[in-house]
Simulated assay, not measured.
Amino acid sequence: MKRPALSRLALRGLVGGLVAGGIAALSFGQVAEAQNIAGFNSNQPVSYAADRIELQDRQNRVVLSGDVVIQQGDLRMTAQRTTVAYSDTGTLRIQRIDATGGVTVTRGNERASGNAAVYDFNRRVIVLSGGVALRRGGDTLDGGRLVIDLNSGLSSVDGRGSTAGENTGRVTGTFAVPEGD
């Protein structure tokens, strides 16, 4: 079933932004902003803060817990717990970040939240899952899973795992309509 062009453009603009113009940029506005997703530099340094850190050197991972904040450029991820997997070939290189417990990803005034997130640095893909909610101004989008491909700039939301009351398993939302002059 083909969606109306306005719905495709609105969804592309909504999802395209927040990861874009920077993270996983989920922009709720202009379609042109959605083009910036593919331009996000996932090679920027990653900084972190947490109440506790555990280095699991033999497993090549770091576990951060308690009010975790991870920052990469203008992308910010918060969670209760994250596991950072890395490779060590003389230089440490992050492979993947798994986050759980009230995960929120923000860029500017745009915000995406869910129960869990995976940022795969090798594939350049970010996946938010479990009660996903996107917010910017009066625009909202709720679903079960958000996938952001930083290579192609394509983002998609589906209802898998959605628990939005009567719309369980569906993507729902509201687009604000500007007032006329």
Rank of each mutant, 00 (worst) to 15 (best):
T100K: 05
V103C: 00
T83D: 09
A112E: 08
A85T: 11
V68D: 06
R111I: 10
Q95G: 08
Y119I: 15
V105W: 01
A79Q: 06
L92M: 11
Q56L: 15
R135V: 11
L64V: 03
I53Q: 12
D88K: 11
D67S: 15
N115V: 01
T104V: 11
V69F: 05
R124T: 12
Q95T: 13
N109Q: 12
L128N: 04
D120A: 09
R81W: 01
L64W: 02
V132D: 05
R107A: 11
F121T: 11
R107D: 08
Q71H: 04
Q71K: 14
L134A: 07
N122D: 13
D98W: 03
G66P: 10
V103Q: 02
Q56S: 07
S113F: 01
Q80W: 02
G130C: 02
A133S: 10
S87D: 14
R93A: 12
V63P: 02
G114T: 08
A99W: 04
Q71T: 14
G66A: 12
Y119G: 04
S65Q: 15
T106I: 12
Q56N: 15
T106S: 12
S87W: 00
V132R: 06
G102I: 01
N115H: 02
T89N: 14
V127L: 06
A112I: 15
V127N: 08
Y86M: 05
M77D: 00
R111W: 02
L92P: 05
Y86K: 09
S129F: 03
V118A: 10
V105T: 02
T106Y: 03
V103H: 03
D67C: 01
D74L: 12
Q72N: 08
I94M: 04
E54M: 10
A85P: 00
D120I: 05
D88N: 14
T106H: 06
I53V: 14
I97T: 06
D98V: 07
Q80H: 01
T78N: 04
V69N: 11
Y119K: 11
V125S: 09
D57P: 04
I94H: 04
G114P: 07
G66Q: 15
R111V: 09
I53A: 13
R61D: 01
R124I: 09
N60D: 08
A117N: 05
R111F: 03
A117L: 14
R58E: 13
L64I: 07
R76F: 04
T89W: 01
V62M: 11
R111S: 12
G130A: 01
